[in-house]
């Protein structure tokens, strides 16, 4: 299976990188870009008996390693057979 896991800085935690990118957009003339948050996207190939088991495994992995739950949120974006 192939899965995507998305990790972002929690909404209440300052993301200076995202802010710098937003300012970059504005200086390119894209005035409508009001906010940018930068995260990480993990492309994971894994073996699991079914999608539910894969999701459980991915959430466990995100909590233990892919994200630091003190400052980051995570979600499984997709799982494909």
């Amino acid at each position: 299976m192939k899965a995507l896991v998305h990790v972002t800085v929690k909404p209440d935690v300052l993301d200076p990188q995202g802010r710098a990118i937003q300012r970059g957009c504005a200086s390119l003339g894209y005035r409508g870009v009001r906010d940018v948050r930068q995260g990480k996207l993990f492309e994971i190939e894994l073996d699991a008996p079914d999608r539910a088991a894969a999701e459980r495994l991915l959430l466990e992995l995100a909590a233990k390693l892919l994200a630091n739950p003190v400052v980051e949120d995570y979600r499984v974006v997709s799982i494909e057979d």
């Binding site: 800085v9 935690v13 200076p16 990188q17 710098a20 630091n68 003190v70 400052v71």
Partner: peptide, 17 residues
């Protein structure tokens, strides 16, 4: 030590990058 859970909190990118 923070990542290992031996200390509370986390250290992030400096405010001014």
């Amino acid at each position: 030590l923070c990542e290992a859970g031996l200390l509370p909190g986390a250290l992030l990118r400096n405010r001014d990058l």
